[in-house]
Computed example of a mutant assay.
Amino acid sequence: MGRGKTAAAKLGALGLVTVLAACGGNSKATPNLENFTAQQIYERGEYELEVGNPRRPADALKYFSEVERLYPYSQWAKRALIMEAYAQHRAKKYEEARASAQRFLDTYPGDEDAAYAQYLLALSYYDQIDEVGRDQGLTYQALQSLRDVIEKYPNSEYAQSAILKFDLAFDHLAGKEMEIGRYYLKRGNYTAAINRFRVVVEQFQTTAHTPEALERLVEAYLALGINDQAQTAGAILGHNFQSSPFYQDAYNLLEKKGLKPEAKGDGWLAKVYRQVIKGEWL
């Protein structure tokens, strides 16, 4: 969190020392804070994040929430809310982080920190991607939230990071389709495998998984005896990814059947091939 990293030092140490003394140096025991200013309580929260016990962001949350409770209409309450979302995210309390970030966006839509709130909301989805197994709902939500950062705040310091994470999340979705497709292919369920590889070719063609998806389509269609589609998949692969090892694998599979990569028939892959030739694909 770059925005508040040195705020405690910049705001002055007097109020922070006062609160620390009242706490007896014990971050686990929250003192009665009603006699302290919003700034002093806020500084204590920042202290917990940066110095007190950075490994326990939950220790800071109680101070930020107290600022909101005791001084709900102050500028410090606004700052505390965005820090609350940040601390919750750091504590891996992703649902709570989303709720706090959304509350900030709803309450202060035009604030200079709105871009960061939107970015935190997106991160709360993005950082869960590896935890969701085959359920990709959170990945789609991460993509939508990252898109919001990119489109609503294109000039913010978070836009470039959002673009990078969007590409990675997009690639992750394609990778999941490939994983399931390989599973079906290995078990001889060729139609189901083709459906998964088709999704990659049609919807995720800008990812690194496209060459393998085309090669797997050659393999699956040959197994089903649908040679026109197999040849066309090989032709697309050769047109765009001739240096890929997947093209050589596809070429070898076709050659064993006395076939070669070329556009054949009028199936869905033939339409893709025509788009490739016209330069409207990839």
Score class of each variant (00 low, 15 high):
residue 183 Y to N: 06
residue 81 L to I: 00
residue 19 V to F: 05
residue 79 R to P: 00
residue 133 G to I: 04
residue 54 P to F: 06
residue 3 R to M: 08
residue 44 R to A: 10
residue 30 T to S: 07
residue 19 V to E: 08
residue 197 F to N: 02
residue 234 G to Q: 01
residue 233 A to W: 00
residue 83 M to N: 13
residue 252 N to E: 14
residue 190 Y to F: 15
residue 136 Q to G: 07
residue 214 L to A: 04
residue 209 H to L: 00
residue 110 G to A: 12
residue 113 D to A: 07
residue 248 Q to W: 06
residue 189 N to A: 14
residue 206 T to C: 03
residue 267 G to H: 03
residue 223 A to V: 00
residue 264 K to L: 03
residue 222 L to S: 04
residue 114 A to T: 04
residue 208 A to M: 03
residue 79 R to D: 11
residue 153 Y to G: 04
residue 167 D to P: 00
residue 154 P to Y: 12
residue 49 L to P: 01
residue 126 Y to L: 03
residue 138 L to H: 05
residue 182 R to V: 10
residue 267 G to F: 01
residue 98 R to G: 04
residue 208 A to F: 08
residue 250 A to T: 01
residue 7 A to N: 06
residue 79 R to M: 05
residue 177 E to C: 02
residue 196 R to I: 11
residue 239 H to F: 09
residue 15 G to V: 00
residue 10 K to M: 05
residue 253 L to R: 14
residue 124 S to D: 02
residue 137 G to D: 14
residue 204 F to P: 06
residue 238 G to V: 10
residue 255 E to R: 10
residue 4 G to S: 09
residue 41 I to G: 02
residue 148 D to H: 08
residue 202 E to F: 04
residue 161 S to W: 03
residue 239 H to Q: 15
residue 6 T to Y: 10
residue 237 L to Q: 02
residue 28 K to Y: 12
residue 9 A to T: 12
residue 92 K to E: 15
residue 132 V to R: 14
residue 277 I to C: 08
residue 15 G to S: 11
residue 166 F to M: 07
residue 210 T to E: 12
residue 7 A to R: 11
residue 229 Q to V: 01
residue 33 L to V: 15
residue 198 R to V: 01
residue 150 I to P: 00
residue 20 L to T: 03
residue 169 A to W: 01
residue 151 E to F: 09
residue 247 Y to M: 05
residue 242 Q to Y: 10
residue 276 V to K: 08
residue 91 A to C: 12
residue 147 R to N: 12
residue 160 Q to R: 14
residue 208 A to K: 13
residue 44 R to E: 14
residue 27 S to H: 07
residue 229 Q to H: 02
residue 71 Y to F: 15
residue 63 Y to R: 08
residue 50 E to V: 04
residue 178 M to V: 14
residue 109 P to D: 13
residue 135 D to A: 12
residue 71 Y to K: 11
residue 207 T to S: 13
